[in-house]
Each structure stands twice: as C-alpha cells, then as structure tokens.
Design a protein around this nucleic acid. Structure first.
Length: 472
DNA sequence: CTATGGCACGGATT
DNA sequence: AATCCGTGCCATAG
C-alpha cells in the first residue's frame, strides 16, 4: 500500500535558518515533560508569546465546560478505510499527570493528584471501550469525583438522570474502576480496596488467603488495625491476619486519587521501572479487531501557543528602541512555535510509519515486532538518521494494552526473538538446551547462534536448562 | 562429553 | 567517533 497519510511532505523541506535548525533539533529530542518545562519557561520570559487556554475535548475538538467533554469521546475518523487515525498534537490536551512539577511533591510522599486532571487521565484510558451512549455517563461519573477519587453519590441518581438501567451505570463505573489508578470512582475506601485486590488476583498476584474476605467482612476491624478482633472474625491465626494486613498496606491504596504506587505489572520485579507519562498514546476499539489504530501525539500543555496580537499591533505602530527589542522577542516566539510544529510533524510522520508497519506488534504483542532500524526508517521518510534518533530518544508510548514502553522498543533488534524463546521455554515439556533452541529457531527462519540464545535467555531472567527441570 | 557463562573482537548502528 | 550487539573461542561445571 502506498502512502496513506495526507500530511504534506514537502512542507518539511522549507529552507531553514541555522537557529531554526538548532532549535528544532533540541526540541525534537525532548519528551513531553521537558517540552512542557521549556514552554512554561518561554511563556514566563517572552511577552510576545501567549497561551490561549481554550480547553477543548481531546477527541471532538468541542469546547470543554467541565474539563471533560460530556458529549463525545470518540476519535474523529478522517477516513473510515484508513487503518490509522491520528489525533494530532494540536488542540489535544495534556495527559493528566504530565503537568505536575516534580518539586510540587518531592517532599511529600503522599501527594495528592490534581483532581482536575484525573478525569482526563481516566477517560483517556477507557475512551475506546465506551459505547456512544456510555460516554456521557462516564463523563458524569468522572466529573463527580471527590478529592480522594471516590464517587460518593448514589448510582441510582445517575440512572434516573440518564434514563438508563442501573446495570448500565454500574458497567461504566466498573470500567472506570479498573483503570489506573485502580479503584477510582469507588464509593468508599473499602470498595476501592476490594477492586484493587480483585485486579491483582486476576493478574496472578499472590496474596494471602482470605484477603478479600477480610476486606469485605472485617473492614471495620481492619481500619482500626485490630489484629485480634480480625483474626477472630475470620477464624484464622494472628500471624495469618498480620500477613493480610501487611499485604494490604504494602500493595493497596485506599485513596485512589492519592499518588499511585506503581500500578500492577508483570510478576517479575525486573529493572527499576520508571512510570513515565507517555508522550504518545496508541489505542483502538477493542471490540473490533479491524479497527483503526488511534495514535495521539500528546500536547504537553493546556491550550495553544499564539503570538500576542496586542503586542504585535504595538510593535507595528511604534518605532521606538524598545519596540525594536520587542520585535526581536516576537521573532523568537514565532520561531519557537514554528519549531514545535516541526517537531510534532516529525513525530507524527514517524508514528505514522511505525503504526502502519508494526500494527501487529502494537496489537498482539512483542513477538510480532518486525526488527527495523532507525536508519531504514529515516531513509523511507527522507529525513536524516539523526532526526529519527532524536525523535525516538527519551519518548514513551502507551500501547493499547496499557503498557507504557519506550519508543526505542520499536527498534529493539532482539525483542521479537527473545519473546519467541520465552514462549518456547514456557511450552517446553523437557527443558530445552540452548543448542536445541537455536536449531528450532533456525527451522523457523531465525538464524541465531547458540551463544546468542544463551544471552537472550539470561536477559529474560530464565534459568539454564538443567536448573529449570520441574518448575510450575 | 555436553551445556553454559566470560571475555573479547569486529561489524553494525547511532 | 562512540556505542551496542551478535558471535566465536575457551574455561569450567555437571
């Protein structure tokens, strides 16, 4: 299939000044956090630059009233036959927690999330799972969250107000509750904890027996940390009770809106995982496997950047020295806006290419990653290698699965084979030696040296054949 | 003798 | 130019 994007390519090849070039490069290698900081900085120092805070729905572009678009949450479909849809960076929104400054909470362990951001953050995760008539309900629930992330009002009221059965409201709320932060929109701390416990269990998390019952039946004792009374109620020993309490306080969070504690993740506690906010989000409608991929290049701040029109007028009309200086500032502001546009354009082009080529990887997981290099992408897009390199660096993508991975993972040469090996070992009957694995792989067309298999194996934290005899 | 990890080299990639 | 990565060789363990 030929070019499927409608973005103009030749717009890129405008002549640039060296300043333009230098700035575009440095902006390109910034992720959204850094870019947000940069923009804030410029806004503070440059009077010619102006932020128009027109809050718009990230998906329909409609003006927002209560931070959450109450009407729609469906991405606009530019062309229904196109497998990829872009919600480009202009007029999109800042994803939730993105805008918090680190110094805001460094000293507090239990900082409270800006609850104005929370609805956005959650809505974004569930958008593609909502049916049209459920959107307004989701918006209403998210709008009614209190500071702790609870939805204290009775659900029946919503059902009456929206003229739908209570079960529908419950369904929507359950979707919300299972988003990150898990348990949000529960009616109480107790309910939030139960939802979290359920989710962890579904994820195959080991937890002490009776944890759920402790939450359901012994919540009163639990909140008072009354070990004796709790153990009596559950009919188990004190030490088992203490295990439950320890588990709950370590892994669960009664107030979903207060800082997330590192959401659930794979069983293996591997490298220090950074919970970076994504710069790009890829989602799709999970009910329709042929659905379009929705790629959002997130815009790190609220509102859009503009040139201060008032100042522009002043500059045009006066010819004093000070206005000359202002004119310079204005030039700088225009340059910045242009460079940011350039950056976004590059990112969109890159994601276009990746979303199209790696659709299977995005939808189905690591083993469908087609190995590709930055250089080859650069060639196809007609840009310099270093451009791609910068664009890829320090960015992260949220995949439809909810996983947030570094953008560089798209260029991981070995990820595909590594996951195939992992699968192979999981399905093995007798432990396979590295040599066996290597020869099996070459039958499937993967020519990998035995030595390399060993390396991949250890990268995945899998023990050598003779040590994994009878596991699981 | 087989399976695996360490070290280091060279080519690819950034 | 600097770094990363796959691979070969060899030593060691079982």
């Amino acid at each position: 299939m030929a070019q499927r994007h409608t973005f103009t390519q030749n717009a890129t090849h405008r002549p640039m000044t060296t300043a333009h070039l230098a700035q575009t490069m440095s902006l390109l290698e910034m992720n959204n956090n850094e870019l947000a900081e940069k923009i804030q900085n410029e806004l503070a120092n440059n009077p010619a630059l102006e932020l128009k805070e027109d809050y718009r729905c990230p998906v329909c572009g409609k003006k927002l009233v209560n931070q959450v678009c109450s009407v729609c949450s469906r991405p606009p479909s530019l062309d229904p036959s196109d497998p990829i849809v872009f919600v480009s960076s202009r007029n999109t929104y800042s994803s939730s927690y993105t805008s918090r400054r680190s110094e805001d909470y460094e000293s507090f362990e239990d900082f409270s999330v800006d609850t104005e951001d929370l609805p956005f953050y959650v809505l974004n995760q569930i958008r593609t799972e909502l049916k049209p008539d459920e959107r307004a309900i989701a918006a209403a629930i998210l709008h009614g969250l209190d500071d702790n992330g609870f939805y204290p009002q009775p659900l029946v009221e919503l059902a009456v107000h929206h003229h739908v059965p209570l079960s529908k409201i419950e369904h929507v709320r359950s979707l919300i509750q299972h988003s990150d932060p898990i348990g949000v929109a529960s009616q109480s701390a107790q309910e939030a904890l139960i939802v979290q416990a359920d989710t962890l269990r579904e994820d195959g998390f080991d937890m002490p027996p009776l944890t759920k019952r402790a939450l359901e039946e012994g919540f009163h004792e639990l909140s008072k940390k009354d070990h004796r009374a709790l153990s009596k109620r559950l009919g188990i020993s004190i030490s088992d009770t203490e295990k439950i309490i320890a588990f709950i306080s370590e892994n669960l969070n009664p107030f979903p809106a207060h800082a997330h504690w590192g959401s659930h993740r794979n069983q293996t506690s591997d490298e220090p995982e950074r919970y970076q906010d994504p710069d790009i989000i890829i989602s799709y409608n999970k009910e329709d496997p042929e659905a379009q991929l929705v790629v959002q290049v997130l815009w790190p701040i609220y509102g859009n950047l503009h040139i201060n029109q008032f100042l522009k007028k002043v500059i045009a009309e006066t010819k004093t020295d000070s206005s000359k200086q202002l004119a310079e500032e204005q030039q700088k502001a225009m340059l910045l806006i242009k460079c940011i546009a350039q950056r976004n354009h590059t990112l969109v082009q890159l994601m276009q290419k990746l979303a199209y080529d790696q659709r299977k990887f995005i939808l189905k997981g690591d083993r469908y990653l087609i190995p590709m290099t930055r250089a080859s992408v650069a060639e196809e897009l007609g840009v310099h290698e270093s451009t791609i390199s910068r664009a890829v660096s320090s960015k992260s993508v949220q995949l439809p699965s909810g996983k947030i991975v570094p953008l560089s993972q798209f260029f991981d040469r070995s990820l595909q084979v590594r996951t195939i090996i992992k699968d192979m070992i999981e399905k093995e009957k007798k432990p396979l030696s590295d040599t066996k694995i290597a020869s099996k792989l070459s039958q499937d067309g993967y020519n990998i040296a035995r030595r390399t298999v060993a390396k991949y194996r250890s990268m995945e934290g899998i023990l050598p054949a003779h040590l994994r005899k009878k596991q699981n």
